[in-house]
Structures are given as structure tokens and as C-alpha cells.
């Protein structure tokens, strides 16, 4: 892997809550146009890694680079406006606002107003249900529809990198299919994705490369071919 074409790069990142280390010496890179997976058991440090990238928690050590420039220590809105969008765990949509207003909020992360309408239309093509229900209160949508809205809201910011924190959590298998199909479509449109997931096999199969975290440390890196290797998948979690 060459660092030169990495759009997002973590170098030796460590994060601690109080005195307890949640992530230790983590290095990973995401290159333009890739889907990169980040899997591991609960408490492995996956969400903490995303929070550190977004500036929600300050890294104790290491460096976080976006397009080769450090974004470490920046506040969340500054990271968002630099081209990183997060689809947070639990979706965090604004239930009392309309679907359209939720999308308009996503525009806050754009680096310029030009092309906003085209991007909104593109996400409407990708998620027709978001367009159909755009006048409704977001709280009236089902869990799966809300997840699509959360991804759509992140995409209208036209990010360089899209971070997703467990987008399939709590969804029915049919809706999970929709979400994973949408991720494949997003890749085809050239959006770079860092995907944190509990559904290990599907993530490994979809991603160009999947990092496995355990106890805050990088345990191994898997490729799509490993998705069918049950022994390796079990080892990723249990070794």
C-alpha cells in the first residue's frame, strides 16, 4: 500500500477515555474509491476510531491525515466541512424535522453551494423512498427508511470519505440487503467509504480490504476472498 494515494490515513493513532486505552497504535488507510471495512467484537474500538477521525474525541497519539493534511485536533464541524461525512450509529436523524429538512442539514457539510441540487437529486435516485416521503416528519419513517435518510443526508455533503457506523444495526435482513446494495452503488459513484460493521462476513465480501480490531489494536487485514474462509473469519474474532 502506498501512502501517496490514500485519501484518509491513520498513523499510530491512540485514544484513551480517562486512563483506559480504547484504541492503541492503529494505522490504516483508505484510498480514493475504495470501500474499507472495520470489524471486530463489541468494545474493540471501531466506533472510537470513527469518533477520533470526526474530532469527537481527541487522539492521545498518532496522526490523522485527510488528503495528506492533518485533521487531528479539529472540531467536528471543521472535519465535516473538510470532506468527511459520518452516518452515526443509531442513525441520529432529527425526528421532529421533515425528511427534506434533514437533507438540508446535510448540506451544512458541503464545501460550496455549487452542485447541491444535483447531489440532492442523485441521492433521491439512490434512495427513492427518501424522495417519496420528503415532506413527512423523519420520525414517522421506519427504521430502514431512517437509515436510508441518514446515508442520504451524509451523501448530500458530497464528501471525499463517507464513514458509516454500524448502518445495519437493528434492521431486518431485507433492509440490510437494501443498505448493502446502496453501499455498492455508492462505490460505483466514486465515493470512498470506511464501513464499521458487526456483520463481518458481508463486510469482508463487500470491502476492498477489511481491518479487524480487537481490544483497540489491529489484529489482521482481510480481503474479499477471506469472506468464504470460515476458519479465517472465526480466527479474526476469536484468536
Amino acid at each position: 500500500m502506498s501512502g501517496s494515494d490514500a485519501i484518509l490515513e491513520l498513523r499510530g493513532v491512540g485514544v484513551a477515555y480517562g486512563g483506559v486505552a480504547a484504541v492503541r497504535d492503529l494505522s490504516l488507510e483508505v484510498r480514493r474509491g475504495e470501500i474499507v471495512g472495520l470489524i471486530g467484537p463489541n468494545g474493540a474500538g471501531k466506533s472510537t476510531t470513527l469518533h477520533a477521525i470526526m474530532g469527537l474525541v481527541p487522539p492521545r497519539d498518532g496522526e490523522i491525515l485527510l488528503g495528506g493534511r492533518s485533521i487531528r485536533g479539529r472540531n467536528p464541524e471543521s472535519v465535516a466541512q473538510s470532506g468527511v461525512a459520518l452516518v452515526p450509529e443509531g442513525r441520529r436523524i432529527f425526528a421532529e424535522l421533515s425528511v427534506e429538512e434533514n437533507l438540508r442539514l446535510g448540506l451544512a457539510g458541503r464545501r460550496g453551494a455549487a452542485g447541491a441540487e444535483e447531489d440532492v437529486n442523485r441521492v433521491y435516485d439512490l434512495f427513492p423512498v427518501v424522495k417519496e416521503f420528503r415532506r413527512r416528519h423523519a420520525g414517522a419513517l421506519s427504521g430502514g427508511q431512517q437509515q436510508q435518510l441518514a446515508i442520504a443526508r451524509a451523501l448530500v455533503a458530497a464528501p471525499d470519505v463517507l464513514l458509516l457506523d454500524e448502518p445495519s444495526l437493528g434492521l431486518s435482513p431485507t433492509v440490510v440487503d437494501i443498505v448493502f446494495r446502496a453501499l455498492a452503488s455508492i462505490r460505483e459513484r466514486g465515493v470512498t467509504v470506511l464501513l464499521v460493521e458487526q456483520r463481518a462476513q458481508r463486510t469482508v465480501a463487500l470491502a476492498d480490504r477489511t481491518y479487524v480490531l480487537a481490544n483497540g489494536e489491529l489484529r489482521m487485514i482481510l480481503t474479499p476472498a477471506d469472506a468464504a474462509d470460515t476458519q479465517k473469519m472465526v480466527a479474526a474474532y476469536l484468536s
Binding site: P76, E77, R92
Partner: peptide, 12 residues
């Protein structure tokens, strides 16, 4: 409604 999520979306 949710200050943290707003900031994550780029709301200053």
C-alpha cells in the same frame, strides 16, 4: 434537538 449530531453534519 441534538447539538452533537448537528456539528457532525457540519453545522457550525
Amino acid at each position: 434537538m441534538d447539538f452533537r449530531t448537528s456539528r457532525l453534519l457540519g453545522v457550525r
